[in-house]
């Protein structure tokens, strides 16, 4: 019974992620005066990958190469499960928000390890960039979460954070909450690897760097993992800053996707050094100001 429920949740998250990603692609296409793909494009793309041949590069560490997408997929599954059960059942499942930060690191970590294990120089370049990007955005997201922790008075449970805000005290409406939301938004953009923060994949220069050697079912796992993140990361941010009823949340999810798409289409790709400087020397100090405001109750 429980497993069927979990399965339904996961099915729901994957399809929502697919639709969200489609929305981003479609809007981008419209911005560029193209027609854009139909709504089921992502799903058939992934299905196609599972009937294709899998190529494993020579000189790769096979076990790590095959294991990486699987570990990444299962950790994003857990994050999606935690978020949804916390919201619907108002009970705490497995982990508090600090654990969620760490669980969210795992997909990126294994993406990097998978890239290194493929022994491809272009993947190496991509992986190095991904690592730098990881430490860049992680700084900012941590500060944003600390602001949330201050505002809930030291509670670490997601269900409690949602409950408190449902009583009418939405964090998004306060100064520090707004700052934290902005930080979390840039984290989202960078974590999903969308322009201006798509340096690790940069198709034009390093041929989708970190994933260059992946093909067939293994690439399919990466795509599913990305679909899950496409849904669960915006969901997490909505839970933290502006939760509401179920329909509200779905609407806010699409609005967030819209915002991501707008930022994507009006910016060029940043160099990795600029990404680091933007996150460390601009957003991080902003976050520290946010912490200061939050302690004072603004």
């Amino acid at each position: 019974m429980k497993f069927i429920l979990y399965f339904l949740f996961l099915f729901f998250s994957v399809s929502m992620g697919g639709i969200g990603w489609w929305l981003e692609r479609k809007l981008t296409a419209r911005f560029q005066y193209r027609v854009g793909p139909p709504w089921y494009q992502n799903f058939i793309d992934i299905m196609k990958l599972f009937i294709k041949e899998t190529i494993i590069p020579q000189g790769a560490s096979r076990i790590l190469f095959i294991l990486s997408p699987l570990v990444s997929l299962s950790s994003s599954l857990i994050v999606a499960l935690i978020l949804i059960t916390d919201y619907f059942f108002k009970q705490n499942f497995i982990a508090d928000i600090i654990v969620i930060i760490y669980l969210l690191i795992i997909p990126s970590l294994f993406l990097i390890l998978g890239a290194f294990s493929s022994a491809n120089p272009l993947a190496l370049v991509g992986a190095i960039r991904e690592t730098k990007q990881l430490i860049a955005y992680e700084f900012v997201f941590i500060v944003s979460l600390v602001i949330v922790i201050i505002k809930t008075g030291g509670s670490l449970f997601l269900s409690e954070i949602i409950e408190r805000q449902m009583l009418g005290n939405i964090y998004f409406k306060s100064f520090s909450g707004l700052i934290a939301f902005i930080l979390a938004f840039f984290y989202l953009q960078a974590k999903l690897g969308i322009i201006p923060f798509d340096t690790p994949e940069a198709e034009q220069e390093i041929a989708s760097g970190v994933m260059i050697e992946y093909s067939g079912a293994l690439l399919g796992f990466w795509k599913i993992s990305k679909l899950l993140l496409y849904f669960s990361l915006p969901l997490f941010i909505i839970f933290l800053f502006l939760p509401g009823k179920f329909v509200d949340i779905i609407i806010k999810y699409f609005l967030l996707i819209l915002l991501i798409t707008v930022v994507k289409n009006i910016n060029p790709r940043m160099r990795i050094k600029d990404v680091l400087e933007f996150f460390w020397f601009f957003l991080f100090p902003l976050g520290l100001i946010g912490i200061f405001l939050a302690i004072n109750g603004y």
Binding site: E53, Q58, N120, A207, E213
Partner: peptide, 17 residues
């Protein structure tokens, strides 16, 4: 799933454009 779906597997040299 990997074992079932990807029956076709081979190794090839790395791709560097």
């Amino acid at each position: 799933i990997f074992i079932i779906t990807s029956k076709k597997r081979r190794t090839s040299p790395i791709f560097i454009g």
